[in-house]
Design a binder for these strands. Structure first.
Lengths: 241, 241
DNA sequence: TAGCCGCCTTGATCTCGATCAAGAATTACC
DNA sequence: GGTAATTCTTGATCGAGATCAAGGCGGCTA
């Protein structure tokens, strides 16, 4: 299950947020004891509440972060892919993992032992600043999620999600849904049924969803819908078949 | 508006999360260039999207963190009080503040310049580890908030909020609401009307709210309600006058 | 003391999203 | 090929929470 990192893995790892601005040799020193995990769907990487001994970088595939409540159901916190890191902050502090990480596709993930990183930081503090920058991004993302859940309706969250998939700023575009709809629904705090109905409503402003294939007539309109005041959106958008 | 820190301020600052585990002299060195801000309600401390030049520790009073959407309304992210710090992560990275910070009562807040801290970290990396620990706490809190918004009903969030105010584990207890109900509602992602009705429903399990004074007959029951599955709570709890 | 202005509650109504149930479409597997 | 299991969609219904509107209450100022 665990193996060595390949040259290709290094390529990806060295150019991501956590290690940005560090010298190549510094990065190589940090990840010397790292290993690569090969995962199949439903394999887990870490368990919520386990003591943190490492942090991780997704090299390929998709990884779901979720929290389990006492009553048993799971809440999706985030879904990560190539070039994204997770669990940095707890790895440093020796706390417990805040969420379970589980592969939702075939995935390759680099595992960097915590104790080694802590030693590296004591030697060259610049590493810490890079890590803080990465953690800061995660915080920003979480804040945006809180904001979305509190201030936007379900349809608006779906619109924003689709807009975020598109690289263009405006006009026509086609994107592919990155993972299945049950998972997208969880990510957005909706049931699969509600997500399906949200798509149906977005058809009225020129969004066509067919399986994982999405065509958007005007991305700007999507973004505007997402950013409008909740109350000004209310009542517009009838479901279209 | 800005003045020097008093000995009492130091007392509070030195024993909080950010600086835990550091030697007293190290802490003193870090906060040497710090100043104290005296604030009146509605005074703001930092503005969302401004470049970060410092981070902050609340010495006394209450501070609201909120994000403004393009459409103008504000989403409460968190409410902080004595001994809590904010904006550490962006202060290090030189990013922009992720939210606006505003006093909601008379408040005293210490301001620690970012550039000085960064210099300190380069000298003694242990400081960075302490700061990461503090940031990690904030992340945990944000994740819990996402989880609550996605998995709990309004009444359950109110129940959890009340339980968190109580220091006892079980049995009878009396607590005071720390700030006004409009703000509590915002913090929990509810309207003031819905908060009021949530209180009315909790009366049926022995929670009496009178102005800012709350009496709970059995805290354990509150916690259980908060942690139950959403669907198993549905329909229970009728409003009581 | 009167008047006003926040804060809070209550009532009526409406929309959104969850839930329950069923069926279509796709894929996996024997 | 046929059957089963997933995944997704659609319909009907229900409850939670938002919204709109009104009124009570306490503190503030003139």
């Amino acid at each position: 299950m665990a193996s060595k990192l390949t040259a290709g893995d290094l390529q990806i790892i060295t150019r991501i947020a956590v290690f940005r601005g560090l010298k190549a040799e510094t990065v190589e020193h940090i990840i010397a004891p790292a290993t690569a995990l090969m995962l199949r769907p439903h394999d887990w990487i870490v368990r919520q509440d386990d003591p943190a001994t490492a942090f991780f970088i997704v090299i390929d595939g998709w990884v779901k972060l979720y929290r389990s409540t006492q009553s048993g159901d799971e809440t999706v916190i985030d879904i990560m892919t190539k070039g994204q890191s997770f669990a940095e902050s707890v790895a440093f502090t020796g706390n417990r993992y805040m969420a379970t990480a589980e592969a939702v596709s075939e995935a390759r993930v680099a595992r960097i032992p915590a104790d080694h990183i802590v030693r590296c930081i004591r030697q060259s503090p610049d590493i810490a600043l890079g890590m803080v920058a990465s953690i800061s991004q995660h915080m920003h993302h979480l804040m945006q999620q809180v904001e979305q859940l509190k201030a936007q309706s379900g349809v608006q969250r779906v619109a924003e999600f689709l807009a975020s998939l598109s690289l263009t700023e405006q006009g026509h575009c086609a994107v592919a849904l990155p993972y299945d709809k049950v998972l997208i629904a969880g990510r957005l705090g909706l049931t699969p049924e509600s997500l399906s109905r949200a798509f149906a409503r977005l058809r009225s402003i020129g969004v066509v969803v067919d399986a994982s294939h999405v065509v958007v007539k005007d991305v700007a309109k999507l973004r505007q819908l997402a950013n409008d005041d909740r109350s000004s959106v209310r009542g517009t958008l009838r479901a279209v078949r």
